[in-house]
Design a binder for these strands. Sequence first.
DNA 1: TTGTATGCGTTATCAA
DNA 2: TTGATAACGCATACAA
Lengths: 360, 360
Amino acid sequence: MVLRCHCPQSSVILLSIPEGASNLAERSRDPVAPVKITDVAALAGVAPMTVSRVLNTPDRVSAPTAARVRAAIEQLGYMPNLIAGGLSSRRSRMIAAVVPTIASPMFSAPVQAFTDAMGLAGYHVMLALSGYDSQDYEDAQIRAVLARRPDGLLLTGARRTPSIRKLLHDSHLPVVEIWDTSDDPTDVLVGFDHREVGAAVADFFAERGHTNFAMLYASDPRAMARREGFAARVAERGLALVAERELPAPSSIGDGRRGLIGIKDRLAPRTALFCSSDLVAHGAITEAGLHGIDVPGQLAICGFGDFEISSNGHPSFTSVRVDGEVIGRVAAEQLLERIRGTDQPGRVLVPFKIMVREST
Amino acid sequence: MVLRCHCPQSSVILLSIPEGASNLAERSRDPVAPVKITDVAALAGVAPMTVSRVLNTPDRVSAPTAARVRAAIEQLGYMPNLIAGGLSSRRSRMIAAVVPTIASPMFSAPVQAFTDAMGLAGYHVMLALSGYDSQDYEDAQIRAVLARRPDGLLLTGARRTPSIRKLLHDSHLPVVEIWDTSDDPTDVLVGFDHREVGAAVADFFAERGHTNFAMLYASDPRAMARREGFAARVAERGLALVAERELPAPSSIGDGRRGLIGIKDRLAPRTALFCSSDLVAHGAITEAGLHGIDVPGQLAICGFGDFEISSNGHPSFTSVRVDGEVIGRVAAEQLLERIRGTDQPGRVLVPFKIMVREST
DNA sequence: TTGTATGCGTTATCAA
DNA sequence: TTGATAACGCATACAA
């Protein structure tokens, strides 16, 4: 027997089946009755509520009773049903995380740290990927996860549509927004100002004597905010933005290479280029090398993200460091405090820092 | 007022609160009674069951009734409670994914593709990160997610401890294991044989006339399987493995650099190096350049993963391509078929391919 | 410290 | 096609 794969792009897939291996083929429609709390209670000779207490509030149970209950749990292999518990207690112990993608370190790092930190506190994280294409899709993802009755939400960015904002308000759910800032966040926020980042990079270049600037930026809201801050500061200083180019979001190394090709004829003899991510910067540096453009002599380059490639590649390149892991961990802390009701909503602004390396 | 952050490693965090912004501070302990199915039913003048049918099996409801119900849903902003629905129907419409990390493209790509594909089918994905440190921790993560009563599981690799294997069998849950293969998978499997990969790379090098081999490998089970396949094939051919070094898992570019330093004194004049990931390969190439070791003249290098840096960096380098997105998408397909009961368990072996570039 | 009664919001099942 | 009833498995609230 040969299994068929309905995946159009994967015509190259080889298929096979295990020979005589024992597996779950015999899955029945009538699964073994799973052990429930009443079974444990019966075996331990206590009320179901006592079993529940052993699991949730052990200090309110006497030691000998608890021991009997634990023995029964062990013997039966009891595993509490958190769906039922969640319905009853109205606390799902789940958090929904809505991020554009986890294919970029920009978001995989905070999501990883957030998931780890929430896991330690007994929460599971549901992942919803919103992409970069449409606000409607993000809104739909938020609505969809709300049907799971999460105990809290992690959202990316601080720009919400009015209907989603109203929905979140009415739900009274703790919400942490990351990777951006706003004067009027939905609830808690852990992020930084992307316009400030752009301005800081412009200042950094200007202070090193640059007068000609360029930018390669992805077409996502935050990359565009960095671009605006950069361009505005260049203009304030009366300097020249000689070239810029918008790239797809999220942008890849290849986009950076293509981007550099797109702007290279407009570069001044000594230009300072700000790239909206380290992947773009790496691509731009690679392509510059192939065209004999000297970095940093003719072209100084600053990336964003401080991914490992900026420091451990060769040549190393200057990049704006924002610690995604810290954002994820602090977001978890803040959300947990909101869930426990021990804290007021607020903004946590995380610092960014320009890591100066060989490319500038 | 200044909020304090309890995050020890993040002493550099600046804190502030929004001024006069409207947010969720007024979160009450008695949230607005959420709209439930009975409210919709009352407004539409039907039984709750009819509302449920409009949502879940619309073809079993007459058009006019369905229209009235939909109007009521719209008017009240009703959002079904999937926790309650899950308890009643015994189907949570959630899948748990247990992967070591999403910080590496090795796993973020399949998880992303899997999450997207399952989302289209109405499933949400719960993420559990198992790390690389201990089997016990992975087992604990699997047990923890089972308490959520997922409708299926995505697990990484094909090596399960006996107790987990028994637990999964007894649960009768569809399980898809990815990124490895086994003669005796738990249920469905979408992966490939890492020993074969190692052997194929050894063959590739040998056919190009190499007689001296080296390896840098991460200390995770699959990277070690690639190493075994590589070393075994080198031995079979009667050739020499002149140097190898184990690196932390997951390994970074920096690990690759340090790894190369560790083996460089033992390299033969013409050595073929297999690295367990493209990050390691990139680090090794970078470090080789700094030591004046010519790639590929003195040192030929092959990576694993075919991450973008292998093709779009400079110099480009040879790498083993395995399409993580395809693995994720096919894993979703297979799991959905198992959930629907329309397919038998089996293995899908995805192909790998050596992408030859400038480093060999 | 432990137990009892009740409800969480939905869907399976059967009857009309 | 629609409705009534009874779970689903657990935790809240109160009583003992």
